[in-house]
């Protein structure tokens, strides 16, 4: 029964939403929005499970004095402080303290993590473009041409730009489209497998 009910629900909702995809009428659109609302509602309730998981894992580390347990104190205190500041007695989500921490601590930290990408791209491309074989040499030359394409190269600018554009628009785009077509077909195939109950791994057992 634990496996049958989810399978039946997936089939019913899967078929209904598959049909809905082809029906643009108002009742169909409203039905779709109703289901989307339920996804949001379930997501909000599931957040309780997420918070519980975080508290459980953090508290367990603190209790057992696991390695780096101090970080768990920081994480838990930060989480509960933000929840407290976000509550209406402290001004709510638009309150000064919440906004202050969000804008001056959270956003800069997030931007810092994202900006690490620039350095990681440099280290990853250094490793990728080392001319160890014929194929990686081709990769290196292609990368050089693409970088030279955006530089002021004087009389060489036009031919380099043409070669760079050709590389981007012909071999590169062809490969990307081939993968995208495969992904699209694979996605539909997987969706059908799930709706028809052929693929059941998401139920927790394969």
């Amino acid at each position: 029964m634990k496996r049958q009910i989810p399978l039946v629900l997936v089939f019913i909702f899967g078929m209904l939403l598959a049909i809905q995809y082809f029906v643009p009428s108002e009742p169909s659109q409203r039905g779709y929005e109703f289901v989307l609302d339920w996804i949001t509602i379930i997501g909000i309730f599931a957040m309780v499970l997420g918070i519980w998981s975080q508290v459980h894992v953090g508290w367990s580390k603190i209790k057992h004095r696991s390695e780096n347990w101090q970080y768990s104190i920081v994480a838990l205190v930060s989480m509960f402080a933000m929840i407290a500041f976000g509550l209406s007695p402290f001004g709510g989500l638009q309150g000064t303290i919440f906004r202050l921490i969000y804008n001056n601590v959270f956003i800069p930290i997030q931007a810092t993590i994202f900006s690490l990408l620039a350095f990681y791209i440099a280290s990853a491309s250094y490793r990728a473009f080392r001319a160890r074989s014929a194929v990686s040499t081709v990769l290196l030359v292609a990368a050089l041409l693409l970088m030279l394409r955006v530089l002021p190269m004087g009389p060489l600018a036009d031919p380099i730009s043409s070669i760079g554009s050709w590389m981007l628009l012909v071999p590169n785009l062809a490969a990307k489209r081939a993968i995208a077509i495969g992904v699209g077909l694979g996605g539909v195939a997987t969706a059908l497998k799930i709706v028809l109950g052929i693929e059941r791994s998401y139920l927790g057992k394969d």
Binding site: A46, L49, S201, Y202, L203, K205
Partner: peptide, 15 residues
């Protein structure tokens, strides 16, 4: 990153 994903992943790993 998602509590629902976490719940399904817990069930999958347990199984």
């Amino acid at each position: 990153i998602d509590p629902i994903v976490m719940t399904i992943a817990q069930e999958t790993v347990k199984a």
